[in-house]
């Protein structure tokens, strides 16, 4: 897969900052200068530790957090800052979210039928009762649940099934773009695979685009086409997922990869985690920006870093015989 211009950009995040706290007191920048495009039909993963700003950025896209700088373009239209009510509603319809904890994100006092219909009610997206029920049935079927599950309550389901309800709830709106915020972190190992398969299946069938927010790099490698690594509010590296795993350049990415345990005792017993000490704190360093080190592979660096990174990259390429 190449990063050619032929691919159509569906979402463009342009130099976005998200700041918390008012400016007079001590403002806190949770997201700093995020700048990337997401192409139609791809799965773009945003990976970072807790507090890195990955969820905040996701929430900025869906207009829950406002941007303090920059703008976000969706399908050719600006959706950040002040927009019309009509546009706001279209954003909500076209961009849907899947949350981490399916137990917490469903109303436990409502039936599955209501949980899944909620978006339809809010937007009057059904002709009559019959039509609404047909839509709910279809959404449940898409995620592998049965029509008879409609009358049940969330607590009557297993974790994996509840997450399916969460997905059905998003899908019924027929969105173009889905933000999945740690959708499998709360699930059991054996169920994770099911939910990932389901997400991939729906993506193909409905031509969806995903922003997949996660902390677990090992999962992301399987599901994502491209990965952005975010650290303390700053995206430090973006690359195709295979490239990021084989040729990580930024020291934070290297450190993060070194910390992910692989299911292989021979490897794990000889591997030591590499600790990342933040180099950005050096006040004398030249300013850094996102630079393209190989086509489609971006890293946050200045001239000096670039030399080191290129050297490392060449060594890695030599090792892999390229």
């Amino acid at each position: 897969m190449s990063m050619n211009n032929e691919r159509e950009v569906i979402l463009s995040v342009k130099h976005v900052d998200v700041t918390f706290g008012d400016n007079k007191k001590k403002p806190f920048k949770a997201v700093k200068d995020a700048n990337f495009d997401i192409y139609r039909g791809e799965t773009f993963a945003l990976v970072g530790e807790s507090g890195s700003g990955k969820t905040t950025l996701g929430r900025a896209i869906i207009r829950i957090n406002s941007c303090s700088a920059g703008e976000i373009i969706f399908d050719g239209e600006r959706i950040s800052g002040k927009i019309s009510r009509q546009q706001d509603r279209s954003v909500i319809r076209n961009i849907q979210m899947i949350f981490q904890d399916p137990a917490a994100s469903l109303n436990e006092r409502a039936t599955i039928e209501y949980c899944v219909s909620e978006g339809l009610y809010n937007f009057h997206l059904y002709k009559n009762e019959q039509d609404r029920i047909a839509k709910v049935d279809k959404a449940l079927e898409d995620v592998g649940l049965l029509p008879e599950h409609k009358s049940r309550y969330p607590h009557e389901f297993s974790g994996g099934q509840r997450q399916r309800v969460g997905i059905a709830r998003a899908m019924i709106m027929e969105p173009k773009f889905i933000i999945a915020d740690e959708p499998i972190s709360a699930l059991d190992v054996s169920i994770r695979a099911q939910v990932l398969n389901l997400m991939n299946k729906l993506k193909k069938e409905k031509n969806l685009t995903y922003l997949f927010i996660a902390h677990d790099l090992s999962v992301v490698r399987f599901i994502a086409d491209r990965i952005a690594v975010i650290h303390l509010g700053r995206i430090v590296e973006i690359a195709e997922s295979e490239v990021l795993f084989k040729y990580p350049v930024h020291p934070y990415t290297v450190s993060l990869l070194s910390a992910v345990p692989m299911p292989d005792p021979i490897i794990e017993k000889q591997r030591e985690p590499i600790v990342y000490t933040k180099e950005e704190d050096d006040p004398n360093a030249a300013p850094r920006e996102m630079r393209e080190i190989r086509p489609g592979h971006f890293v946050y660096a200045n001239d000096e870093d670039m030399k080191i990174y290129l050297d490392r990259l060449e060594k890695m390429e030599a090792f892999h015989g390229e």
Partner: peptide
Amino acid sequence: DLHEKISKMTGKGGAFYVD
């Protein structure tokens, strides 16, 4: 061939390449 598969995925000696 679990070990071979994962080695290939992770690069040299199982660790991601470092200087």
